[in-house]
Write a protein that binds this DNA or RNA. Structure first.
Length: 471
RNA sequence: GCCCCCAUCGUCUAGUGGCCUAGGACACCACCCUUUCAAGGUGGCGGCACGGGUUCGAAUCCCGUUGGGGGUGCCA
């Protein structure tokens, strides 16, 4: 007998953007497919065709590509659209009915609730099981849940046992004849020879229903694995409404895909050893589904940013400069500004690289070099010039700057000389100068950018600040 | 209500009965370095939810309690 090719399905819903929780599950499936020489099957899940927009699916594929899941790879298959198999879903439901595993029911939701209230029991009581109803207007097809127990063998959690009596006869076909998600899912999984279903924990309570369906259709159920969900600070499942969850958003802010992937993999799982920053190949070698944690994990943006900072600092300089190109923008300054100069930026890049965690922070460190009139932080300005030595020393510095050699080291020496004279340390003394040049009180080392800015412009800014302080 | 899952520093985790005085990472704090801010270095703070068992021995196994989450749709 030929060995069965393992097939892992990744089944996101077609909502315009891609969820970080989904990204992690995708990664798990992708790693498993690679480890076992299997196939990663992408199926976009919605029984309602009107929601299958091509651009949404493309968004999912782009996001997958960003985190390193390549749709051109031989291990990648799809995308498939669940809604395009609707006819098959209905036909299968009818098979189930014909085989005696289902029955039609004409009760409305209100009637079911009334019966439940009257009997004191929960949910639907199986009222129509033996009424012999056929398909018809207002009739739903329900699955006849057998007696006994259903045991779900889960790679992550072990055996989970459900008493079938606690599971009501669930709907397969709506009264308008359309199939429900639960059924569509199983039919598609069987049709696509799916062998492993790795998905979020929230699906665990529905798994016995799906497993019954697999059995009713004469197929051995797949290997199940329910991984913990990602939660917000309130410990609630990450929600698109409340939380910042779009992978694309992190991409646009300058999170590096390697950092994102590495961070995501440390939620619910950890590589061996004392360091969590590990290369992707290492993760692929070491990851085991059996070792995935059982409890929900908080998606910590601060830690993500810290990982990203590490990855930024690991980059060779030219790669860093290159990565900056795509994200150089800021809200206050249109980017790239008129007088953007690549050479100048490249000269600044080494000073910037250790000072950002996210690439979008880059512009705020260099924008003053490329704008005619950098906006001035008023509060910082006032504070910097409050010392009695501030204005006189700055004037003195500007005088010295008029004649000295225009290189960073020389500029620094001039400022230090003024400091020695007034008995003010360089760290303090450079405050007013920094505000004058950059408009801010913190930033990269000062003298390199002053050199890059040039004598004329630097002096102009200093004079302008002196005037402002005099007002 | 009913069903299911979960429980180690603030957070993410290591831990699979003795290597645990519970290890690491992020965050936080202090110091060093320093041209502000970072980066880097050193150190610090901080945890096995609770109660019963089992065992010579429990973070680890069992039961219960409490707390959290999820599911329970003619949503996906």
């Amino acid at each position: 007998m030929a060995a069965l090719t393992p097939r892992y399905r990744f089944a996101p819903s077609p909502t315009g953007f891609f969820h970080v929780g989904g990204a992690r599950t995708a990664l798990y499936n992708w790693i498993l497919a690679q480890q076992n020489d299997g196939v990663f099957v992408l199926r976009v899940e919605d029984t309602d065709e009107s929601r299958n927009h091509p651009q949404w699916t493309q968004g999912i594929i782009d996001a997958l590509a960003w985190i390193g899941i390549d749709s051109g790879d031989p291990h990648f298959e799809g995308p498939y659209f669940q809604s395009s198999f609707a006819a098959q879903h209905v036909a299968t439901a009818e098979e189930i009915f014909a085989a005696g595993h289902g029955y039609y029911c004409d009760l409305t939701t209100e009637q079911i609730q009334e019966r439940a209230k009257a009997s004191g029991l929960n949910g639907y009581d199986g009222y129509s099981r033996d009424r012999g109803l056929g398909p018809g207007l207002g009739h739903v097809l329900r699955f006849k849940v057998p007696t006994g127990h259903t045991i779900v063998h889960d790679v992550v959690r072990g055996e989970v046992e459900f008493a079938n009596e606690t599971i009501e006869d669930f709907v397969l076909l709506r009264s308008n004849g359309s199939p429900v998600f639960l059924l569509a899912n199983v039919v598609d999984d069987i049709a696509m020879n799916i062998t492993h279903v790795v998905r979020a924990e929230e699906h665990l309570p529905n798994t016995p229903k799906q497993q019954m369906l697999w059995n009713a259709l004469g197929s051995p159920p797949p290997v199940w694995a329910h991984v913990p969900v990602l939660v917000n600070e309130q410990r609630k499942k990450l929600s698109k409404r409340r939380d910042k969850v779009a992978v694309e958003q992190y991409r646009d802010e300058g999170i590096l895909p390697r950092a994102m992937v590495n961070y995501l993999m440390t939620l619910g799982w950890a590589p061996h050893g004392d360091t969590e920053i590990v290369p992707w190949t290492h993760i692929v070698d070491e990851f085991r589904l059996e070792n995935v944690n059982h409890s929900p994990a908080f998606f910590d943006i601060k830690k993500l940013a810290a990982f990203n900072g590490e990855y930024i600092r690991m980059m060779p300089l030219d790669e860093f400069i290159d990565a900056c190109q795509s994200v150089l923008h800021s809200e206050s300054v249109p980017w790239p500004p008129e007088n953007f100069n690549f050479e100048v930026f490249a000269a600044m890049a080494p000073l910037v690289q250790t000072r950002v965690a996210v690439l979008s922070e880059v512009s705020a460190l260099v924008d003053f070099l490329f704008t005619a009139e950098p906006p001035i932080d008023e509060a910082a300005f006032t504070k910097s010039f409050s010392a009695d030595w501030a204005l006189p020393t700055l004037i003195e510095i500007s005088k010295r700057f008029e004649g000295c050699a225009w290189v960073a080291d020389a500029l620094k020496l001039e400022v230090e000389a003024v400091g020695a004279k007034h008995n003010v340390k360089l760290g303090k003394l450079q405050g007013p100068l920094r505000i004058a040049i950059t408009g801010r009180s913190v930033g990269t080392p000062l003298f390199e950018p002053i050199e890059l800015l040039g004598r004329t412009e630097s002096l102009r800014r200093i004079h302008s600040a002196v005037q402002r302080a005099n007002r």
